[in-house]
Design a protein around this nucleic acid. Structure first.
Lengths: 221, 221
DNA sequence: AAACTAGTCAAACGTTCGTTTAAGTCGAAC
DNA sequence: GTTCGACTTAAACGAACGTTTGACTAGTTT
């Protein structure tokens, strides 16, 4: 019987690759480096995975499959739209925080010129859009493409995704300017900000902080 | 006199490198490929730039310097905060659209492990935050770090940046799902959506499209 | 005319890349 | 006890990498 424990070479290699891909990028990470980091022999990687790009494909599949499952939980619950959207945002950001390396790889690693990877991502995005059409958007918006120009989900969807990912993607810079410790409490606080921003805009965040947007330039009160 | 025309090898090489870095990534792009694309001899690149990473540094410096100049124009104008923010968002997105390749390189190319590049980016972000503190945030917020936790610019800033960049970064996927032509009219339309989303939240976009957020699940009207 | 300079080039430097090969280990199956 | 298959290994493969060298051109300076 093969060994399915957490210390199996397969999983060790995948975790090691995710760690390195997230920090150096796919192209800049060498097979020997993955092997060294995972404490396995170089040839074992090709034995288990075939090729380097197969590792990337598996990491992406793992990440997006888990994300779609998480999204479906929150989007299909019987609740009003605001509740579903808030739950979706919180669930997504918690999922990112549980899979920081894979999230970074899945978002950043974006070789235009490897159509195979672009197609893989496109497919998952298509399924996510399907979830939104069935559970979030007004029922009449799922029919014709006409009012998709009026409510441009192809713009707002990526924008929301980018908002939710922003902290994780820019954390190397953010933590230099204002060091943060990624605790569950921080993640919830962060998700609250993103959800509020998406659902109510920045003035709501200002007023929560006891500030407001002055209507006259130079008038602080 | 050296030749400062647009066809100088320097500029040709930089444009070629930006084009390839944006599509394949810094690490996956070879010097020979840049040379071939720019129709110059391989050795000329090292003659003009010294090393590969120097090309990246120059591209990032060009992009961020231009971006800061653009941001300063809109943030320092005498107007109310809403106007300044809207102008900033439109200006930034127009700047991205004018420098698509360099924008992509500047945002995506993020080797954790090359501190030199991280420091370069951190410095420019610091200067951008300075612009906001001096021109946008309520005057009392520029003093103590206390209420920066109440109004977390370290979260909202990156989130806005990610929103503005989202279309350009994900365009390989977006254009597969819904082909778009990047015209000035489209850019303005896109910037309008992002500005509305940031300043008023998604319900405003829904109501503009003649939709609204139903408060009862399954109630479309 | 000679010396100098910036630019351009083909060729080669040493290193690292992803992958493959062929030999070997070891427990289970027969 | 032998055979088998899954696993592991050191070594090597050819190709591509970033960079350097040294010769050569052509325009300017002295």
């Amino acid at each position: 019987m093969p060994d399915p424990t957490a210390d199996s070479p397969r999983r060790t290699i995948l975790d090691s690759a995710a760690h390195l891909f997230a920090r150096k990028g796919f192209a800049a990470t060498g097979m020997r480096e993955i092997a060294r980091n995972a404490h396995v022999n170089l040839a074992m990687i090709n034995y288990y995975f075939g090729s380097k790009i197969d590792i990337l494909r598996i990491l992406l599949d793992e990440f997006f499959t888990g994300f779609l499952a998480e999204a479906e939980i929150h989007l299909t619950q019987p609740a009003d739209l605001n509740t579903k959207l808030t739950a979706y945002i919180h669930g997504a950001i918690r999922y990112f925080s549980r899979n920081i390396d894979r999230h970074r790889v899945a978002i950043i690693e974006f070789p235009f010129e490897i159509p195979e990877i672009v197609d893989l991502k496109t497919n998952y995005v298509r399924r996510l859009i399907g979830l939104f059409h069935q559970n979030i958007l007004p029922p009449d918006s799922s029919r014709p493409a006409a009012n998709l120009d009026a409510f441009p989900i192809a713009i707002i969807g990526p924008a929301l995704g980018a908002m939710m990912s922003s902290f994780f993607l820019m954390s190397p810079i953010i933590s230099k300017l204002r060091p943060v410790e990624i605790t569950p409490a921080f993640i919830d606080w962060y998700a609250d900000i993103i959800a509020t921003l998406f659902l109510h805009g920045v003035p709501e965040l200002l007023s929560r902080a006891g500030m407001h947007i002055p209507s006259t330039p130079g008038d602080p009160s």
